[in-house]
Design a protein around this nucleic acid. Sequence first.
DNA 1: TCCATCTACAACCATTTGGTTGTACGTTAG
DNA 2: CTAACGTACAACCAAATGGTTGTAGATGGA
Lengths: 140, 140
Amino acid sequence: MVVDGVTDEAVDRLFHALADATRRDILRRCVRGELSVSRLAAAYPMSFAAVQKHVTVLERAGLVTKQRHGREQLVRTDPDAVGRARQALDELESAWRARVDRMSGLLSDDGTGAGPGPGTGPRADPGPDATTNTKKGQDG
Amino acid sequence: MVVDGVTDEAVDRLFHALADATRRDILRRCVRGELSVSRLAAAYPMSFAAVQKHVTVLERAGLVTKQRHGREQLVRTDPDAVGRARQALDELESAWRARVDRMSGLLSDDGTGAGPGPGTGPRADPGPDATTNTKKGQDG
DNA sequence: TCCATCTACAACCATTTGGTTGTACGTTAG
DNA sequence: CTAACGTACAACCAAATGGTTGTAGATGGA
């Protein structure tokens, strides 16, 4: 399911990174890009290393960037990040509409069992994503 | 971080549910609400139980609903689901802007002691979400 | 130089996740 | 009633996640 150059795995990372309250809070704090990792870490009831891992998750998701400033590493939220997430949602939504629209079209065009009727078997193949989401490789 | 009746945990569940290509694909397929869980399961290279779990994750995130139809359980994507996700993104983004705007005024680095925003201030204590995201509860 | 700070990363642990199989139960068809 | 289908759920397992501590390498200042 690659729509606009954004791969499934990128969307996975994006939403996964957003699915944690601490990470979302880091995003909110780092808009100005003035917080180092250790200063950031001081704001949470967890170790420096834990916050470092959160920042890494955000970085790999493309939500923040790091910039060295002396011995500090300043974390900065990418302003376009929310845009990418929103785009992923838009793609989902448009896919829905496309699907609804297509089905409406089929029903009004053919009508000879082309609908969701069980007899035609809407699809026997695993589907678009099912074949590409082999991020785990569950063949064993 | 509760803004509009949507708790942090709800946002966690929402984004976590979206962070999986199989689940996103299920969402796309179930707009019409005509697919039972077993028919859905037939579309993926995994067991029925695995798909059942995915549907449960989506259901707990409020992204789909199930409706019994005879012995089948028809899965249907909630049309407002994307709206909720988008709202969560909007809240993130608006929090950014609010923070930038506020910092322009008082140049506080931690936000601690943010006087001019008692009701509007998103938070004042360092670990806002971190304290509330005790979904793990590592007290032992 | 020497020390304090910041960062990076490895090792380790408990819990969660995502998958499997097996079993039990309700519903429909014959 | 019995068989088949669809669902639900438990038990189990490998891998990922989120946390910890410890150690080592850069960097900046006295």
